[in-house]
Structure formats: structure tokens, C-alpha cells
Amino acid sequence: MAGPGPSRGPADAAYAGLVRPLLLPTWVVIGILMVVPVALMAVYSFLTKEFRGGVEWDFTLAAYDQFFVTRGLFGDEPAQIEWTYITIFARSIWQAALATGLCLLIGFPTAWFIATRPARTRGVWLFLITIPYWVNLLIRTVSLKFLIRETGPLNESLMAIGLIDSPLPLVNTNLAVQLGLFYSYLPFMVLPIYAAVERYNFALSEAAADLYASRWATLREIVLPVVRPGIVAGMILVFVPSLGAFLAPDLLGGAKTFMIGSLIDEQFKGSQGNWPFGAAVSMILMSMVMVVLLAYARAQGRAGR
């Protein structure tokens, strides 16, 4: 997201004459299989739903209307705001925000700790943090569900040591979903913060200490402001995928934790599906994400100047 970096002098322009052929495959593949589809999805969100799951090429605002407006059960009452889907979005934002907070709370100390290890062991710590990320997300989520389910090893062992009398009902709660999101995206928080802390000039902390700042005052007054770009990057990297997450809410949550990902998924499953509505929900989700990313890019551009 940081931009391509400046191109360096002519010394590194050995392939200047071949730029077009070298970039052609990228343009063709991502252009046809990504840009065109997203544009097509935008068009679909204005089409008419067909009953067996599919579309008719009649342009309408029905999908967006369904999202924002209700006219009662039989469509004969005055138009009012439809809260069902807005609630799902709000819940998703809230869940993603909490997961982001959780990741930050645990991720910052972890990143700091790793970045302050001697250079030799740093790589190993970092490696340990990133390995789980490379394990299949589905398997991780299933494993988490296995661990925390009512009769799972966590509850069993907590009961065995007498900490609790009856199993904690963890699965199908908001907490489980947040834990799942945390588990899914934690490395995205740790890595950028780590990179920022690694570049941090510890003489600044020493100067603060010299000027009578306590350890925690130094953290608050000096460290956090200086490494803020890394923290913001980490928060965005966790928040954005959490917002559209599907597996964690689907496997760990229940009806009460229904999130955007599941809402979209439903629209494309079987004959109850509604493709235009699914496309419209996707458009709204994507617009939200793009707003976050653009705001971030602009803030970064300003800070870079």
C-alpha cells in the first residue's frame, strides 16, 4: 500500500525498453479477471433478481432499496429505514473494531518484545509468530472451535482443575468470533509494528528517561507517537479483512453474530439467492473499505511530505 517507491537513476533502468511487454501479462490477467469483474458486479447490483438465482437485464434500484428501505411486510406501508442490514453492518464494524483492538493490545507488546531481541534470535521469534498465519485459515478456525467448544479440551481442563463448575458457553458468542478474527489476522498487526519499532531510535527513549520520564510516560509520549505509522498500518491490515470475514463468524458464531460475509454468501447460495442484492451488499462493503484505504493513503501522503 506504500506506493511503488521512487524509480532510481538510469543505473537501474536496464529494462526501460521492455516495460510494456513485461507488464502486459499483469495488465491482461488482473485487468480481465479482477477489474472487469468488479465493474460487472457494480452493474449487477442494478439488475433485477430472477427467481431461480440469477438476473434479468432490467435496470432497477431494487437491491439498494431492499438494503435501506422497508415498506412493511406486504410492501404497502409508507417507506421507512430498513434496520436489518444496517444492523448487520454496524455489528460487523463493531466486531472488526474489537478484534482490531484486541490485536493491538496483544500485538504491540509482542512486536516490541521481538524487535528488541538480539538480531540473531529476532528472526526466529518473528518466524514463530508468522507460522500459524500460513496454516490454512479454515483449519485454524476449525481447530479453535474444537478447542473452545462446550465439551472441548479447554472447558474440560478448566473443569478438571476446578476453576469452573459448568462448561463456559464460548462457541456462538461474540467473544468466539473476536477470538477467531484475532487468531486469523494477528500477524498483520505484529509485522508492521515490528518494522516500525525496529527502525525506532532508542536514543529517543534514553533522552526521555534522561529528562525524567518514567518507562510508561516514555511509551506514551515518545514511542507511540513515533511508531504510529506502523500501528495505523497494522490496524488497517486487521480491520479491513475482519470486516468482510466469512469463516470465523460462520463457524464460531451463531445467528446473533451474523456478519456481512455471511450475508453476502447467502445471496449466492441456491434458489433463495439474490444476486443483485448480494452484488449491492458487496459494493457497499467495498466502498467502505476503499474509503478507509484512501483516507489512509492520503494521511500517509501528507505525512510523507
Partner: peptide, 25 residues
């Protein structure tokens, strides 16, 4: 700049949105 954005586009669009748009395509 545009090429860079294009290369990274799949990282910026939410996965579920990629899924939907690809299916529609």
C-alpha cells in the same frame, strides 16, 4: 503508479468481494 495499484488490487479488495465479482464474471 497505475501498474503498481493494479498489481496490489487483489490485496485491497475484500476477499468476499473478489469471490462475488469473479463468480458474476
Amino acid at each position: 503508479q497505475a501498474s503498481f495499484a493494479l498489481i496490489n488490487l487483489p490485496l485491497m479488495v475484500p476477499e468476499i468481494v473478489i469471490a462475488v465479482s469473479t463468480l458474476i464474471f
